[in-house]
Structures are given as C-alpha cells and as structure tokens.
Write a protein that binds this DNA or RNA. Structure first.
Lengths: 359, 359
DNA sequence: CTGTTAGCGCTTTCAA
DNA sequence: TTGAAAGCGCTAACAG
C-alpha cells in the first residue's frame, strides 16, 4: 500500500499539470490510526483526552501522532463543531482611513489586548479594515464581530445584526438583541479630570476634542458642558476638524490663542503629549505655571517630557479584557440577551497639572 | 414542511436543557435550494458563477439566497477546498513583551498594511502574540505564518518550517525551503543617511541602536561600521539596553554626553522624535546648529516639531504590500521554492538635518 | 474498552 | 440544462 487513495470529487492535479514541487499531503487522523494499528475513534479520543482508554493505548496514539507530525484539520473540526472560534475586529472611527487606527496608541493597545485576551480564550482575532462593509469579508466564519468605537452614522452594526452575527461594541448598542458592549465611563472621567484641574487652581479649563460622533467623544462633550454648568463656568471647546497630529495641533493652537486665555487645557484627542507642550511654549505659556495640561492619551512619551504630562488613561487593556470575557461568555451560552460592562478610567497626575503650591 | 430534520451525530440540545433563546439555525444551501425549487448543485453553481445555467435560473437562485440571508458556511468550503485562507502574523522582536509591538509606529503600520493587503487578496490575518510558541495556536488552520523581524535565537521559524507551515519573514530565512521573505535594504539606508549627514557638514555622527539581534538592526550596525571604516571615522555607537522610550532616551543621553561630543545623531530605535529634540536641548545642543538629527521612525510627530525632524522611513506599507504579493503568489502555486524581495527605504530630509548654509 | 458508521455543509464529477 | 451522490477530515452515537 504505497499511498492512501484520495478519490471523490476533489480538486486533483492532472498529469499534464506542471506540479511545482508541492509538499506531500498532510497527515490525517486515519494515517495516524493506520500507522498505530488503531482506529480513528481511538486516536481521536486519545488526542482529545475524551473517552475511556487504557493509558497505554492513549500513549501510543499520542506518540504516533507526534512522530508523524499530525496536526488536526481545523476546517473539519469547525465543520463538525459548527463553530469557527474566529472573531472579527473592526474599528468604527477612522472610517475614512481604513487602516490608520493602529497608529493611535489607544487603539494599538486596545487591539493587541483584545487579540491577546481572545487567544487566551481560544479565539483568533482577525483584523478588518475600519469602515468596511461586510462585502469584503462576509464569507469569513466569524462567530462575532467586535466594532470598536462606531460612529453614529455607521451602518456596520446594523448590517452585522441583520446578518445574525453577534456584535460586540460600545454602549451605543445597548439593549439590541445579539449586541453586547464594554464602555469606559466618560462622564466620570471628565468630572474627575475637571475636578482635579479646579483643585489645582484652574478656572478657565479649555477642552480640545475631535469633531467625532463616537459615543465616547459625545459623552465627554456632554459631561464637560454639564460640569461647566454646575460650576457656573463658560464652556471653552475647540473641535479638531480631523484626527491626526496636524489637525489636533491646529485645534490646540486655536484654544491657546482664544481671546480669553485659558489656564488649563484638557486634550481628549490623540495628540502626542510632547507636541502639546511645544504648542504651549510656542504661545508663551509656562506649564504648569500659567497653564495646566492633561491629555487623554496612552502614550508613554508623557512620562519623559519636561514637565511630564498628566494623562487620562482609558485603560484599553482592561476594556479589552472585560470585553472579551463578556463576549466569550455570551458566545459559549449561545446567548442573545444583550449585556454590558463599564470600565473605570485612570487619571495619572504628573507635573503638567500640579501646581507646586497646591496639594 | 415545518423544518428540515437535523439528525446525525451532532451536538444536539436535549429537552431538559434550559435552551437560552438561541438564534434559529443558519440558512443552508439546501434550504435555499428547497425554497427556490432547485437542487443544491444548481444553487451552488449559480452563486459561484460556475457551470452553465440559464440566466433565469441563476437569477432566481441568487434572489432566493439574498432574500433568505444565506451565507455560505466557510468551514465547509474550506474543508472542501483544503484551504483556509488564513494567515498568522507574529512579531519576533519584542519576544519578552508579547503585545507591545503595536505601540511602535513601524509595526503598527506594518501590521495594518499587512492585514489590508492580505484581505485584498482574500486572506484573513490573525494576530498572534510575539514570541509565542505554536502551542497556543497550533490548531488554527494557517496556510502560512508571517514572522516579522525574528530575533536570532528565536525558534519560531524552525518550528513552523518543521510543522510544514510556510513561513514568511525577513531575509534571515533566505534559502530555506518553504520560506519566503521581504526585507528593507538596511545597508543602502545607512549609507544614504550617513552620506547626507556628511554632506551637511557632520564629521562625528553617533549611532543609537537597540541591543537587538534582529536582522535589520544587525545590518544597520554592520553598514555603519563599514561606512566609518571607508571614511576613516571612529564609530560612535550607543546601544539601548531595551526598547521603549525610557531606555532609548537613556541611550541618547549617553551618546550626547560622550567625551567627544557628536555633531550628528542617527537614532535607529523607536524613540518619539520630539523626545530626541528635547534630549538635545537638555544637553545644550542647538538643532540643527550644533547637532544634526535623523531618526529612523514612522512617527508623524516628526513633521510638527521645531525644527521638524528628518526621518528615515522603512516604508512598512510597501514592505507589507510586496510581501503579501509574494506570499500569495507562492501559496497559490503551492510553491516551496524560496523567494524574496528587497524594498528601498526613504530618507525624508527636514529641518533637523539641514544646515542653512548648505545645499 | 474499542471499532464501525453517520453526517457537519459544501463543491464537483458524472449521469440523466 | 439540471440533479443525485460522493466525499473533504473530523467527532460522537452506538454496537460489539
């Protein structure tokens, strides 16, 4: 018996086909079984640790499999199990520039932490282009798709839900069947930051924010206005026309050159902290003397500037962790019931927002 | 006919099972066929555009499928086709910190560009933790695994090749069966940069580099030494003990406080350009007056500092593009023959390395 | 305690 | 031009 016959309506190589030195066919379960003088079932049970087998047999099966370099065919397993253990990942923001999101430290961390957590639970994460419709990847066997920070007019979530694919996103999907979410407590974060700045003596805190319809950004804006109202302050908001260092620097410039100069700056946009400091310097501010600065940022550069920049961390790692936990639970239960969880942020106070003469 | 019977040795829900309101079973090909009054074969052919069918029938099949929200089962297709169209992606560098690589703008861009290019060719990219052995993901049906910038003592490439999984990496795998590569021309990049600095008047160019065994970093070091030898210059190399802003800032500090002060600095480590400038300032250098600066970096902040920082771009986008092109070609040919391609870098000269009084 | 068998959903011969 | 049937590799039900 030189070779196991592979018949059936299978794509086969004809004799005339040039046949580039192609790898020998993969080792299958039957091959292992035959080699070990056992049956498929036995080997399968041995390898999966199921069934009641004698230790000797189990050992023998495993040995043979290892020796032959057997690797189970995932497609067959998936077909059998009806589950692919594949999760799609797409970022809703940045819809215009499908792949730039990883350049934002927040999304970079969120993405990698999500991939890590997913893998730990036995799911593989597939990166998808932001803002793409399902057209491009409708055929991938996703058990769920994560839509990070969808924008308000984004149809992805609807499309996905309509296609009966469970969606995992932020709190904007709350309550929809098949939709689950994690979110960050934007309101609490804003209040904590503004309170801190006020504690340090700030009375005219300006906010710089991208002009985005993300739930997070809207939440920040709302909370800021509410806080100002509660404290009798005039809101000072500058919207950045777009994301990226350029437009946000412009917005910061705008905020710093306002008729009534601010005495604190809260930047909730991905702008490299050193550049914020540079902008302040450029406009004649001393930080933290005339201007307190807090950036919502995950950049590690913040700790290395002079003065170090206070940051508000949105804790992408925790968000990812909590999210995957929830998603996996929902998936394993086959649960359509919506569910969600809120993750707290963390304010890291550094030199840029601490007055020497204050607590 | 209320429901198609689903029998067979399939995991089925017993009556006593609480049965959380689980979604109705997915629409299968047979369901569409039955609904349309056609056979599986016909519908399959219609949907795939194969076979010779009357336009009317084809239309009808497509219509019905659309109406019913049919989505082909990828696992079944894969099993049939023997191909999963899944590519693994793992970064070799950063083996110690499995997921930090995305925080490097270079890897962020490389990763997203790779995912984009792969998807465009119909392959999904799965993100894997750096430095992980296959143990964690051996069962995923990868048709190939991309190992970005493996370190010298990394076993991943060997393991993968031994498991008969095609590997795509950098030129360090050149010539091994089943291995393909793209790489950046480190030598040319270094020469171009050093020539440029010399043109601008630099005579003591210091190099800052992570202490890494990546092919790229070694190539840079070698080329630097060769260039110094050719020009009769003393090499001035400072190795950063680790990656990340902290250690690299330290290395820059070291380079800038050497007994013989350098008149140019070439930083080939992921350090935020504004921080390089700040370090120079801290040590009393005027840029570009006393010190010319070039950073190998993909950071967009470089363009927004004062002065803007010259950067050497390793062109991750092009690397990804060319790489996937090659990989897909190899995969589609079932080709074991090693192959590779070299991508040129690009030096973007900005204010930090241009003397006012020079070309 | 082990082996035979059916069938997951799909595509592809091959026959009608 | 359309349909019936086989089989991709695997696991689980059921016999032996």
């Amino acid at each position: 018996m030189t070779d196991a016959p592979r018949h059936g309506g299978h794509p086969s190589r004809t004799a005339s086909d040039p046949a580039p030195r192609t790898a020998p066919p993969r080792v299958r379960l039957v091959d292992v079984a035959r080699e070990a003088g056992l049956s498929k079932t036995t080997v399968s049970a041995a390898l999966n640790g199921t069934g009641r087998l004698s230790p000797a047999v189990r050992e023998k099966a495993r040995d043979t499999a290892r020796r032959m370099g057997y690797r189970p065919n995932a497609a067959a397993r998936q077909l059998r199990a009806g589950r692919a253990r594949l999760i799609g990942y797409v970022v809703g923001e940045f819809a215009g520039r499908p792949w730039t999101y990883l350049e934002s430290p927040y999304f970079a961390q969120l993405t990698s932490a999500t991939a890590a957590a997913a893998l730990r639970h036995g799911y593989a994460l597939v990166m998808l282009p932001a803002g793409s419709l399902q057209g491009e990847w409708a055929d991938l066997p996703f058990e769920a798709v994560i839509v990070a920070d969808p924008v308000a007019d984004d149809g992805v979530v609807e499309d996905l839900l309509a296609a009966r694919i469970p969606v995992f996103s932020d709190a904007s999907v709350e309550g929809r069947a098949g939709a689950h979410w994690v979110d960050v407590d934007a309101g609490a974060a804003v209040r904590e930051t503004l309170d801190h700045l006020r504690d340090q003596g700030a009375r005219r805190t300006a906010l710089v924010l991208p002009d985005s319809t993300t739930r997070f950004h809207r939440g920040v804006l709302t909370a800021y206005h509410a806080w100002c109202a509660a404290h009798g302050d005039t809101p000072r908001v500058t919207l950045a026309a777009d994301i990226g260092n350029g437009p946000v620097v412009e917005a910061v410039d705008g905020a710093l050159t306002a008729a009534e100069r601010p005495d604190a700056l809260f930047v909730v946009a991905e702008l490299s902290p050193p550049l914020v400091l540079e902008a302040a310097r450029r406009h004649g501010y001393d930080v933290p003397g005339d201007l307190l600065v807090v950036c919502a940022s995950e950049e590690t550069t913040a700790a290395y500037t002079d003065p170090p920049v206070s940051t508000l961390s949105l804790r992408p790692g925790e968000v990812a962790e909590a999210g995957i936990e929830l998603l996996v639970a929902a998936l394993e239960n086959g649960d359509d019931e919506p569910s969600g969880v809120l993750v707290p942020t963390r304010l890291m106070v550094r030199g840029s927002s601490r007055r020497a003469d204050r607590g």
